[in-house]
Design a binder for these strands. Structure first.
Length: 518
RNA sequence: GGCCCCUUCGACUAGCGGUCAGGUCACGACCCUUUCAAGGUCGCGGCACGGGUUCGAAUCCCGUAGGGGUCACCA
């Protein structure tokens, strides 16, 4: 039997890392068995619905490479894949349950239910719907409904006994039926609740394995009751552990306590393959212990049974470290250059030949954990003017004499390559009988404006004679003028203004304002 | 609070009756070194607790504690 899994996100906000997490495992399970992966939008909460969230979820899946075989954007034999477009289906199924006496129409208003809960709390009784609507005669239910009276449809859940389901990861889970109330199946606005829509859709879409987050464990018995009411076979259930906040208690991951938006990580320069790899290690591990692996490598050996149940903390440091490893050892130099190029262009940086970019990325990639950091550090290689930070200015003044000598030496250097530069520098240092750093640091600072940068020989070689001499000239001038460029804030503001202007010029986001044009 | 689930270094995990309890991140030290990184070496640090079962328990059972989830006309 073909394996069919699904991810059923709710378009109510930013694309969530939890969706990516559960999506990854569903995708891997389906692909491992040559099955299908379905994406279904659970947009039945019209109060929280956000139209743009829908496209952002689809875009997130595309970005991650977890492309569904069936879904709202790609279609499929069991569509539509948007629950709001399947209302008739749910209504028909509910009608059937009502006709068979397995569900009933209940007419309590939300206010009445609130009052009931308050009363129950006061009496010290467990809160929850008490099934009072069950006693309303069927013809009475039908009459009031036909008259247009607002109502919901509830499932008749057994009061006695217990319901058990088998979880692939936890074994049998049993919940007393007394805990399962007569759940609302169809809301008064005609939309189904999660429970109904979920069961109906999973069945109709042929879902064989329901892999979802642990928060659904306790409602699974209700789903089992529904499957039974319809006379449908049960899918295999597996509940993944909940991703946790890095707080003391490890509570369920929430945007109140940490960044849960995949878009946000993308904007920070996290690579999709690093995020996937990271997510894969949350509760799961490669049988051979490898910690860096691709999606395909994961699929090749994926076994949902290997999922461990402790709630894994979403640790940013580990994500960043993994991302850094992708930048410097997993992806090829060319690939990293391709990834970072858009970030550089966004900053208004330009380069003539691809090799220049490659050289820059080559020296920077061991120093950056994200694409954003890489782009930030690349700035001195692309801008015309650099700003000197506090440390830099101190080192500059101390190195004035060396910089003057080197300006001459570099301009006279015949072959401007790595070896020649290296020789020149070391010979110079030896002749001056000073410490290497006394010369290198002022030079580094003159070239980059900061003390934390790649090796000087690399810098000079990559920047080339012209840019190197320009930088030295500018630095020497600055020193003579008492370092008037000692306001990095101002230069930064200028750079940002320039970048904004470049962006506006491209007309990407909006037309330039009159002020900007003038 | 009721119910359900979970419990190996600070974090992510390997382990599935006999291991000096292994790896990764983080942290610390040292090496390398023109700075910062990267890299290398080493270190720190754990089976929640108590009972069983067994010749033998991180591994099996029970209890306790702790944590999480859930108790909506949200998913």
């Amino acid at each position: 039997m073909a394996v069919v899994t699904r991810i059923a996100p709710s378009p109510t906000g930013d694309p969530h890392v939890g969706t990516a997490y559960v999506g990854l495992f569903n995708y891997a399970l389906a692909k491992r068995h040559g099955g299908r992966f379905v994406l279904r939008l659970e947009d039945t909460d019209r109060a929280r619905y956000q139209p743009e969230a829908e496209t952002r979820i689809l875009e997130m899946m595309r970005w991650l490479g977890l492309t569904p075989d069936e879904g709202p954007d790609v279609g499929g034999p069991h569509g539509p894949y948007r629950q709001s477009e399947r209302l008739e289906l749910y209504r028909a199924h509910v009608d059937r349950l009502v006709a068979e006496g397995k569900a009933y129409r209940a007419f309590e208003t939300p206010e009445e239910l609130d009052a009931l809960r308050i009363d129950q709390k006061r009496r010290g009784v467990d809160p929850g719907y008490d099934g009072r609507g069950r006693t309303l005669p069927a013809d009475e239910q039908a009459r009031r409904a036909a008259a247009g009276e607002a109502h919901v449809v509830r499932l008749i859940a057994p009061d006695e006994g217990a319901t058990t389901f088998h979880d692939l990861l936890r074994g049998d889970v049993t919940v007393p039926n007394a805990e399962i109330r007569d759940a609302v199946l169809l809301k008064s606005d005609g939309y189904p609740t999660y429970h109904l829509a979920n069961v109906v859709d999973d069945h109709l879409m042929g879902v064989t394995h329901v892999v979802r987050a642990e928060e659904w464990v306790v409602s699974t018995p209700l789903h089992v009751l529904l499957y039974r009411a319809f006379g449908w076979p049960l899918p295999v259930f597996a509940h993944l552990p909940l991703l946790r906040n890095p707080d003391a208690n490890k509570s369920k991951i929430s945007k109140r306590k940490m960044d849960t938006s995949v878009d946000s990580y993308r904007e920070q320069g996290i690579l999709p393959e690093a995020l996937l790899n990271f997510l894969a290690t949350m509760g799961w591990s490669m049988p051979d212990g490898r910690e860096v692996f691709t999606l395909d490598e994961m699929i090749a050996v994926f076994d949902v049974t290997r999922v461990s149940l402790g709630g894994p903390v979403f640790d940013l440091k580990r994500l960043r470290h993994l991302n850094a490893r992708y930048l410097r050892e997993v992806l090829t130099l060319e690939a990293v250059a391709d990834r970072v190029a858009p970030w550089l262009r966004e900053r208004g940086f330009a380069w003539d030949d691809a090799d220049y970019l490659l050289d820059v990325v080559d020296v920077l990639r061991p120093r950056a954990e994200t694409l954003r950091e890489l782009a930030d550090q690349a700035e001195p290689f692309f801008v015309d003017r650099i700003a000197y930070d506090v440390d830099a200015r101190r080192r500059l003044a101390a190195g004035q004499a060396y910089l003057e000598d080197l300006e001459g030496a570099f301009s006279r250097l015949e072959f401007f390559d790595d070896d020649a530069i290296d020789d020149l520098l070391h010979e110079y240092v030896q002749r001056q009988s000073v410490r290497l750093g006394d010369v290198m640091m002022p030079l580094r600072v003159a070239l980059t404006g900061t003390t934390q940068a790649p090796g000087v020989v690399d810098l000079v070689a990559i920047m080339g004679r012209q840019r190197t001499l320009e930088r030295l000239g500018h630095a020497l001038q600055a020193i003579q003028e008492g370092l008037p460029d000692d306001d990095p804030e101002r230069l930064k503001a200028e750079a940002e203004a320039a970048a904004k202007a470049a962006e506006a010029a491209k007309g990407k986001r909006r037309p330039p304002t009159a002020a900007e044009q003038g």
